[in-house]
Amino acid sequence: MDTKREYTLSELIQESAENSNENDFFELEKPAMLEVNLKNQKIMAKAGSMVAYVGNIDFKREGMLSKGLGGLLKKAISGEGTRLMYAKGTGKLYLADEGKKVKIIKLQNESIFVNGNDVLAIDENIRNDIKMLKSVAGMMSGGLFQVKLSGSGYIAITTHGEPLLLRVSASQPVYTDPNATVAWSQNLSPNIKTNLTFGSFIGRGSGESLQMEFFGEGWVLVQPYEEVKYAQKS
């Protein structure tokens, strides 16, 4: 753990400077910052996540998860109406989302489901499909929607703190708080479990009364934080 309390200016520059020796397409520049090295390429990123760029990069807002991540979300009334943007051109693009940790995944003809709010960036070669959790309870929990990302290419997701991966088996289902659930394997399809007793309305009333239940064989990624989403006005 870094216990240094003060820096000289040269020390700050040395520690905080980008690593110019790495030039992967998606690169973890800092634990909470993604560097995207664009070479006449296009990506989709969470709107508002751009913190800096160098070069010739154009941006285009796309509204609430429209087109590139499914027109269905234009009609969504959820609090997770994540707004997106396209970034296209040549240069270095730096992305971050409220100090959350960034995880880069390189899919190799694979698929993964991600909570829509936790998608930071995807390259244009990744196919995507969005589905709302078809449950009244799901809407009560914030209208959770899942993004299926498939194919070969880079994606970047975010988590509050270091996530925990839980194994799911036929004999051992896993139950998670919807607001702490980040991602899960392609062969799992979660259900919403309700426990709406009188006591469930006391306290936070999130994961205590509504849970996502995972059956089958696979894994679930959870974060040590309940990220409650609030409805956004279009």
Rank of each mutant, 00 (worst) to 15 (best):
T3E: 06
T3N: 11
K4I: 02
E6F: 11
E6L: 10
Y7Q: 10
T8H: 03
L12E: 09
I13N: 12
Q14R: 11
E15G: 05
E15F: 02
A17C: 11
A17T: 12
N19Q: 09
N19D: 07
S20A: 07
D24G: 01
D24P: 00
F25H: 02
F26E: 01
L28V: 01
K30T: 01
M33Q: 10
L34I: 01
E35Q: 11
N37E: 03
N37G: 04
L38W: 00
I43M: 10
A45S: 09
S49F: 07
V51Y: 11
A52E: 03
A52P: 00
A52R: 10
I57M: 06
D58C: 06
D58P: 06
K60I: 08
R61F: 08
L65I: 14
L65Q: 14
S66M: 08
L69V: 14
L69E: 00
G70F: 04
G71Y: 00
L73H: 09
K74H: 03
K74G: 09
K75V: 13
G79L: 09
E80T: 14
G81P: 08
G81V: 09
R83V: 15
L84I: 13
M85V: 14
A87C: 12
K88L: 13
G91Y: 02
K92W: 10
L93Q: 12
D97C: 10
E98Q: 15
G99R: 12
K101F: 10
V102R: 06
K103Y: 05
I104S: 04
I105T: 05
K106F: 13
K106N: 15
K106C: 08
L107S: 06
Q108H: 13
Q108Y: 09
E110P: 06
F113D: 04
G116Q: 04
V119R: 00
L120V: 06
L120N: 00
A121D: 03
I122W: 03
I122E: 04
D123C: 14
D123Y: 02
N125E: 02
I126W: 00
N128R: 06
D129M: 07
D129G: 05
I130V: 15
L133H: 10
K134H: 02
S135K: 00
G138F: 02
M139H: 08
M139G: 09
M139K: 14
G143F: 02
F145W: 10
K148C: 06
S150G: 10
G151R: 08
G151V: 12
S152M: 05
T158W: 03
T159V: 04
H160W: 08
L165E: 11
L165K: 15
L166V: 07
S169W: 06
A170T: 05
S171V: 11
S171G: 13
Y175R: 15
Y175Q: 15
D177A: 10
D177T: 04
D177W: 08
D177Q: 13
N179E: 12
A183Q: 05
A183G: 05
A183P: 01
N187Q: 13
P190T: 01
N191W: 04
I192R: 03
L196W: 07
L196F: 15
T197I: 11
F198D: 04
F198I: 14
S200F: 01
F201W: 13
I202H: 12
S206V: 11
G207D: 09
G207F: 06
Q211Y: 05
Q211M: 15
M212A: 09
E213N: 14
F214T: 02
G216C: 07
W219L: 11
V220H: 05
L221W: 02
Q223S: 12
E226P: 03
E227V: 11
V228T: 12
V228W: 07
A231C: 09
A231T: 14
